[in-house]
Amino acid sequence: MAQIEESNRRKSKKNYYSKTLRVDLTPMVDLGFLLITFFMFTTVLSQPTIAKLYLPKDINVKTPIKKSAVLTLMLTRNDSIAWYEGNKIKNEPLAYCNYNNLRSVIQQKQAKVAKVLGNRSETVIIIYPGKESTYENFINIMDEISINDITHYFVMNSKQ
C-alpha cells in the first residue's frame, strides 16, 4: 500500500511542477538585503559636517583686553601646546599641555576669571599657531573654544 501511495504522490508532484514554475527566491532576498545594508552605511558615512570660521579683517586696531583674563596658547610641534596666563614674564618657563588635558587648563582659567572679574565669559584666548602645528591641532583648539563657550578669541598670524 505504502509503495503505491508513494508512487502516486510522486507522480502528482511531478505534474504539479510541470504546471507552475517555482523559483527559490531566498538567495535573491539575501543579496537584496546585503546591498541595502551596504548602501545604508555608505550614505550615512559620506555626510561631512562643517565647522564655521569667521575671521575679522586684518586691520590695525588695538583691542583693549584685561590682562588677567587672557590665556595664551601656542601650538607647537608634536601635538603639544605651550601656554601662559596674562603677560609673559621674561625667563619664566612655559607650561605645556596636550590636547587631552587642554580642557582642564581652559576650565581652570575660566574659574579664575569668574573669581576675579565676576563673569566666566570674560575669558580671552589668544592662539598662536606655530609653523610646525597641524590643521588638526587648529581644529581641536576651535573645538575646545566652542565646547567651553569662549566668546572672545584671537587667532594670530604665525609670523614669529
Binding site: T49, A51, K52, L53, P56, K57, I139
Partner: peptide, 9 residues
C-alpha cells in the same frame, strides 16, 4: 571672511 571648514562629526 566667512569659511566653512569641512570636518567629520
Amino acid at each position: 571672511y566667512k569659511y566653512n571648514l569641512i570636518t567629520s562629526a
